[in-house]
Write a protein that binds this DNA or RNA. Structure first.
Length: 368
DNA sequence: AATGATACTCGGC
DNA sequence: TTACGGCCGAGTATCATT
């Protein structure tokens, strides 16, 4: 089996939200900057979305409670701001528009990350690929003021790892010949899709590095993790990834929120869900989608997640139907779970399908 | 046997 | 006395329906 001769670029903005804040608060560059998501429950209740390097040096990383971050900061001069997604989105769009121009095979992976297949653009030449990457970095910096890291490799998997190795503000090129040596000694959780839990399971098998992972036979991995994941890990450990770049189409629209008070009162929770429903409705209308499945999610006071779902017999565009379904799901959930108290709740619409024409389904039927 | 629905875990940003 | 966001997708197991 030979790898298709591709050249893939991964581009990832460095500590993106915090860097965006640095742009409009330059007096804080070099000092800890923390972008937080506040639940509104208490003054400081919430979690860290992203932090810059001076903050990370203090142990302030994504996901930790803001209260913990405050403690780690002690008396350090710092900037702690609420996440402003509209602002980050506007900067992201400028960057993505720049990137789009460099390849017809462009895939935006998230607000701050994209992949490009530049095989044709550089005619398979890695030196030209590196030049192109430098040009891209310079343009993003010049036109938006944002630093990014770039990885170049024969596939998405290794390009992503190269990009991580390039952080911050760097460029790493891994040619096909160097894939094996690049992977050597890398921790297993540097592989896309292997996180803390899987790394821990692998550790129990005596595997902590990618080259150790490559020593496990396929059948062993498949017995442990299932056929699909086992095969993925087996190939990933060898730097093999033949997946073409492709857009993932969104197939669910959901919103969550933290309750002002822990509760198991269905009316109170339904009201809370109603408050985030308009956002979902806007999304649904903008994308001209209808839904068939309504799910609720409850995160209980011990932060354990529960979900319940119901699929309708017909597709639906009207969100007031969804909230009624959600209420029913909440009722049956809490009657099944007499001891569970909700801290955060969410509602998600899925089994989405495009609506044809201008009229939505209810209008169509109401017309007779 | 195939498909769909549901509940859950994991992972990434 | 601490103390925890809000999204999204992939995948697995299990059960029901056909």
């Amino acid at each position: 089996m030979t790898q298709p001769e591709r050249i893939v670029i991964a581009v990832d903005m460095d500590y993106f939200y915090a860097q965006c804040e640095e742009l409009r608060h330059p007096e804080y560059s070099g000092k800890p900057i923390i972008v937080g998501m506040f639940s509104g429950r208490t003054e400081i209740s919430g979690a860290v979305a992203t932090s810059n390097y001076p903050a990370r040096k203090l142990g302030i990383r994504s996901g930790i409670p803001l209260a913990t971050a405050k403690q780690l900061l002690k008396d350090t001069d710092h900037l702690l701001v609420k996440a402003d997604f509209e602002y980050y989105e506007s900067i992201s769009q400028k960057i993505m528009n720049i990137l789009k121009g460099y390849s017809e095979k462009f895939v935006q992976e998230s607000i701050d990350e994209a992949f490009l297949d530049i095989t044709n653009a550089v005619r398979g030449d890695y030196n030209r690929a590196a030049e192109l990457a430098t040009e891209i970095k310079d343009r993003i910096m010049k036109e938006t003021g944002i630093r990014c890291s770039v990885g170049i490799a024969p596939n998405k998997l290794v390009a992503k790892m190269a990009c991580d190795a390039a952080k911050p503000n760097g460029l790493v090129v891994v040619r096909p010949d160097n894939v094996q040596s690049f992977l050597e000694g890398k921790p297993v959780d540097s592989i896309l899709g292997i996180g803390g839990k899987t790394a821990e399971r692998l550790k129990q098998l005596g595997v902590t590095t990618v080259d150790q992972l490559a020593k496990l036979p396929l059948h062993r991995l498949q017995a442990e993790f299932g056929n699909k994941l086992g095969l993925y890990y087996y190939l990933a450990a060898r730097g093999i990834d033949e997946e073409p770049l492709h857009e993932k189409e969104q197939d669910q629209i959901g919103r969550m929120l933290t309750l002002k008070q822990d509760s198991r009162d269905v009316n109170y929770i339904t009201e809370a869900l109603s408050s985030i429903l308009p956002d979902i409705e806007k999304d649904l209308e903008r994308r001209r989608l209808a839904y068939k499945t309504v799910s609720i999610v409850v995160i209980d006071t011990s932060l354990k997640q529960h979900t319940r779902a119901r699929t309708l017999k017909t597709i639906e565009t009207n969100c007031s139907v969804a909230i009624e379904i959600a209420k029913g799901l909440l009722e049956s959930f809490f009657s099944q779970q007499p001891d569970t108290v909700a801290r955060r709740v969410g509602i998600t619409l899925s089994s989405l399908a495009k609506v044809e024409g201008q009229k939505n389904i209810t209008e169509f039927f109401n017309q007779g």
